[in-house]
Design a binder for these strands. Sequence first.
DNA 1: TTGATATCATTTGCATACGAATGAATTTGC
DNA 2: GCAAATTCATTCGTATGCAAATGATATCAA
Lengths: 153, 153
Amino acid sequence: MSGEDNLLRLVEAEEGEENDYHLQDQVGFILRKAHQRHVAIFAAHIADLTPPQFAALAKLYDIGETSQNQLGTLIAMDAATVKGVIDRLKARGLVELSKHEIDKRRLLVNLTPEGREAIERLIPLARTITEETLAPLTAKEAATFLRLLAKLA
Amino acid sequence: MSGEDNLLRLVEAEEGEENDYHLQDQVGFILRKAHQRHVAIFAAHIADLTPPQFAALAKLYDIGETSQNQLGTLIAMDAATVKGVIDRLKARGLVELSKHEIDKRRLLVNLTPEGREAIERLIPLARTITEETLAPLTAKEAATFLRLLAKLA
DNA sequence: TTGATATCATTTGCATACGAATGAATTTGC
DNA sequence: GCAAATTCATTCGTATGCAAATGATATCAA
């Protein structure tokens, strides 16, 4: 810390300016930490699947067969990311791929019976994960938080 | 969709159970999307630094020289992650490394003059990024959101 | 109809993120 | 004072996440 910095602080204190920047108060930093905590809770309950992999299976279970690109849109992943996720699910036999009959650009993705079994088994655990993630909040706070978070996302 | 599934749905509808699982309502999924949006806003304002890199510089600016490990704790990164971040900042001349004189395990990290210049220039932009991230909320909502988010993180 | 655009998927490169294993150095406990 | 436990840093492997470039196909528009 140089003498100039100390002088600057004095001057700004006199002017009543807030010069401090506290990383730990910034929404981006706290958002990153909250996300990290959620991922850790997820991993503690569902060890053999990542949140993005689970999201892909859950969405396919919800809407049925769709193109890789469309699936990516629905679960908020760009094309490069969704490809990797689907590749790994395919390698594990949880999804299967086929070509779109009419539009030859599209790659259709669907659950295999094993994938359907897996997601049906995991959804109850996912509800627990959501509960545990929100556990520091009261029910009312959790509702408020989800409403505001959705406005941000 | 098999006949058994349809039967299951009828039974559950009669019992008033909620069987649907909507990914887009789960806190983890929305948290991931909110984080993605923040990172995009960050990149639009600060193109030459990532949020983790910025976090490292901002924390060093705040507390001065510290060990790589301690820095990681303060900015919520594990040892493997912080090493990569610091390596890249070092390669760009924004931080410098030195050995701890007494405890030979520790690697001290500090801002270079260029790093100090950079973070002083960037902090005002970071304030803008925070504002833009919270822009969908009113001031009161933003305060509530930050309070609840901090409880979760 | 055909030339310009747009869409879908892939690949490459870079940057987190974290578990697990390893080795060096320090601290603790007895 | 010494063995056990802990801490610090590094490395490896795997998995997102995204920008940019590319190629194939489809759609639009003059």
